[in-house]
Amino acid sequence: MLSMIRTIWYVFLHMFHRRVTVQYPDEQPYLAPRYRGRIILSRDPDGGERCVACYLCAAACPVDCIALQATEDSTGRRYPEFFRINFSRCIFCGFCEEACPTYAIQLTPDFEMSEYQRPNLVYEKEDLLISGPGKYPGYNFWRVSGVQIGGKDKGEAENEGRPVDLHSLLP
């Protein structure tokens, strides 16, 4: 008897506690930017596609759900011809993001990916590529890489000297 009254008392007290239940989906919870949800491909600050098709994310992925093919534009800038993530296999471990040397692939706080059909969980580059830099606003891989691309000649990357003059005999 006594224990029942005590229980009712506790329940009564709970009415004055802070609420944690949210009325999802009417109300959206806050998720930290580093939350590991839907994966996107980002662009560098200049608006160019960030991914350089290095295949590192694909190699890092423990379930092998990333497939891509590298290609190059006429100026030598490398990018993925296609880039596919099979989200029906993805375990949202974030290894791909960790492996990416260009900050191109990023996990986002969006987890609302339920589908009735599994094929709808296969995302192509058109579905993945967003129009901004995502979580890492400043970085542009091509500015540090030594490879020459359109708009960036040899020696114009960060910390690079002008191409050497091979005919110079100065010591």
Partner: peptide, 11 residues
């Protein structure tokens, strides 16, 4: 380390 097993033909 062969990659893409579950994605290459997923389309």
């Amino acid at each position: 380390r062969y990659s893409g097993r579950t994605a290459m033909l997923a389309n």
